[in-house]
Computed example of a mutant assay.
Amino acid sequence: MPSAISTREHWIGSDQGQLFAQDWTPAGAHGEPILLLHDSLGCVTLWRDFPEHLAHATGRQVIAYDRLGFGRSERYPGALPLDFIDDEARRFFPLLRQHFGFERCVVFGHSVGGAMAVACAAQHGQACAVLITESAQAFVEHRTRDGIRAAELEFAREGQLERLRKYHDDKAFWVLRAWVDTWLSDDFSDWNLDAELAQVRCPILSLHGEQDEYGSAAHPERLTAVPGVPSQLRLLPDCGHVPHREQQPAVLQAVTEFLQHHLP
């Protein structure tokens, strides 16, 4: 029988507003916790049952939080800056570390959350034991922009913004525009993670769906090409942008085996 999971909700103060977080802790939890960073339209609720299953599979505490401006966290003050990926690691990762009291963690990010996970491992190397990316972007690719343009047209249809309001309430329009306007901006077109990846020293697992509509296999290939860093690339066949929902058993197995190997 799987171990019982206890879950708690948290409010974490910052100089810009409160963050909402939640943790899932199995009985007899061991080792470094896993910190989840969500995608561009995501939040804690949109991870659905994945955090609980991840806690069961690994025996580790799993922590997820809503970035400022998303989900149940407070509004973001103004427009999202172009350095928002590095800024997330610089400003908010230390607050989560302090609140939950961990010395080190496994940092796990989905989509742009994967880029933020890379930034966390680069800026806070002593605090990141393992880096896991899922469907992450390492640079701005034509496929990424094309996928965002297609999604923007979909959300322009009548009633589609209501899908976001269920999770982000009256912040939904800001969430959508923060995603679209940032990634389609000319000023963001040359963004990449090369400088951050050069600073990563912990083991890297990069998961990517072969049918990902927002990025080709060039992204995980770059993410796992850091010289001197043990890394593993897992391309998932018949899988799109959300492997933890589309192929959850394969994701859980890959993560569990990687952690068992690198964090015995």
Rank of each mutant, 00 (worst) to 15 (best):
G42K: 13
V175S: 04
H10G: 08
E9T: 15
G159I: 06
H168G: 12
R165V: 08
H142P: 14
Y167L: 09
Q260A: 10
A57N: 05
F100P: 03
H110A: 12
N192R: 03
G101V: 10
D86P: 00
A198L: 00
V112E: 08
S189K: 14
M1Y: 07
W191H: 02
G215P: 04
H10S: 09
V175I: 08
F20D: 10
L233Y: 02
A217H: 07
R48P: 00
G71R: 05
D66L: 06
D238A: 15
D181M: 05
W183E: 04
Y214R: 10
R60A: 08
R8M: 13
H53Y: 12
L161N: 06
W11V: 12
G78S: 09
Q199K: 15
A64I: 09
F70W: 15
H110Q: 08
E210A: 11
A55P: 01
G240P: 04
L19K: 02
L96H: 07
E141N: 03
E103G: 15
H30W: 09
P94E: 01
L252S: 05
C239P: 01
F20E: 11
L233N: 14
L223A: 07
E32G: 00
R143H: 01
A121N: 09
F108T: 01
R145N: 02
R157Y: 01
A198S: 13
A156E: 10
E32D: 15
Q98C: 11
A136C: 05
R60L: 05
R157T: 11
P230R: 12
H38Y: 04
A89V: 02
P2D: 13
A250D: 13
A178H: 12
Q22S: 12
R222H: 13
Q22D: 03
L235C: 08
D190K: 14
A27H: 11
D186K: 11
A172I: 05
Q22M: 09
V107P: 01
V226D: 00
Q260E: 13
Q160F: 10
R67V: 10
A250G: 03
Q160R: 14
L176H: 15
G78V: 11
H10R: 05
A127R: 00
D170N: 15
T224D: 05
H208T: 05
H124W: 15
V44A: 10
D190Q: 14
H10F: 11
A117I: 10
S3N: 14
L236N: 00
W47P: 09
T133Q: 03
E88F: 15
E74T: 06
F258H: 06
G78L: 12
A115Q: 02
W11Y: 11
E196M: 13
P33D: 04
G113K: 05
E213H: 04
S73Q: 05
R165D: 08
R245T: 04
A225N: 12
L46N: 07
G13K: 14
A250K: 02
L153C: 04
R157E: 03
L153I: 03
L35Q: 07
W183R: 13
E9C: 12
V200T: 04
V242G: 03
L223M: 15
L82G: 11
I132N: 07
Y65L: 14
L96D: 00
L263A: 01
L197Q: 10
L131Y: 07
P81E: 06
